[in-house]
Write a protein that binds this DNA or RNA. Sequence first.
RNA 1: GGCGACGUCGCCAAGUGGUAAGGCAAGGGUCUGCAAAACCCUUAUUCAUGGGUUCGAAUCCCAUCGUCGCCUCCA
Length: 465
Amino acid sequence: MIRLYNTLTRKKEELQTIDPGVVKMYVCGPTVYNDAHVGHAMSSLVFDIIRRYLQYRGYDVQHVMNYTDVDDKIIRRANEMGIDPFALSRKYIQDFDQNLDDLNILPATAKPQVSKTMPQIISFVEGLIQRGYAYPAPNGDVYFRVTKDEDYGKLSARKLDDMQAGARIEVEEQKEHPMDFALWKAAKPGEPFWDSPWGQGRPGWHIECSAMNLHELGEQIDIHGGGNDLIFPHHENEIAQTESYTGKPFARYWMHNGMLQLGGEKMSKSLGNIVSIKEFLEKRDSDVMRMLVLNGSYRAPLIFNEETLDAAEKGLERIKSALRPATATGADSTAEAAASLPATIQTVQTAFTEAMDDDFNSAGALGAIFDFVRAINSARDAGATQAQMQPAQDLLRTLTGVFGLRLAAKSGTGDADKFIDLLLEVRAEVRKQKLWALSDLIRDRLKENGVSVEDGKQGSAWRYL
RNA sequence: GGCGACGUCGCCAAGUGGUAAGGCAAGGGUCUGCAAAACCCUUAUUCAUGGGUUCGAAUCCCAUCGUCGCCUCCA
């Protein structure tokens, strides 16, 4: 039984899907006008891990992620650069897809774009007007009528009166109520536009997700996800639109990831303190970012700095150490060496699942993984054979695979491998003659060149650092 | 000002009523020609602070202090 935290009810609830065995999951994607940053990576990783786990537990996951390719910021940036807004968004959609692939994130099963969903959006707005939940303003805008929606504010747990008290809203006279929000915006000169019953214009920010959800997944979905900065107004407005349109409850479970913290502050475009995914991956392996996310709780802020990244990287090395082959041969093995492994396999399997079943507690599950790593390494040290270790290593591969970790051995750039082998061969002779200074020189110089040499009883092994 | 989340070892962090997982760092040891890796041992009588409820609280309640997020574009 999987339990998950629902922002809507502020409680953990048992996952019961609309259709048995199928999870309909919609996760808000980016507005494509700039390089995606590690905060986007966190969110995408969180929902990738959730998706992979749901699949591991036997669910067929329909995963929709949208691209917002019609937006004020895209238009502004394109104008600054003197290029077509659609060319700009096309470029950043490609970039984002590449980022996700680099991060080993499974591609969504559907990736709708606003510009390709226009008929559905327009008919959605028409439906809301017909039902009295929206009204066209004289200037060609169409607004959602928040006062008509009785439970408006339920997701973000705020009341209309409280929101007005904030008084940070510029009241437009076109609106009936200050909190009414735009479903459709009349086009200004020089902007891209689509024809509609209310004149030329383009959709507001929130309506696209309602329309895409309806189009891709239907009136009701299981999980709706995104960053917790989207709770208000975006998701609040999405609920208002969709439930007003269909008259049915929209998403069963609302899941929100915490914000990535950079230097104690949320990283965001407006603050300008951004590390792009591309920049990150030039310095670190994609597994490091994933490990950082796994070590925390998806709902809590994630502390992103050199220290936490170093720790994540070291942890990964530790997991990889358990995947190294046995050192013993059949002759010197004993049954006792691996005697505890079968029981450990059961324990780990159970602990992993119990943790992940509890609101995707990856940090708890990771604890089980590390216990497993120690057990495997101990068995190897005790003289277990490869045949004895194999089932454990297979399970470790499976579980880390559910996490989406690649755990790839680092490889060299060219075909230096055979020359490194040769060096080690020579070094073995040198060591036989106990020429330690020369032997150590070779080891040190290889290390300077990113190759670690480890001497063992059965000879020396090497690997890239 | 309103709403919400959170404060657990030097750092990251799990644990939400039954007596503190795990990772990183640090110290000691085994192994090694020396290292490295791996393994073993050690490191929070204590969970921001002060009250309260309870046989029992890091876990529930109240207050205080502090941090962060949302209320405007944001994953």
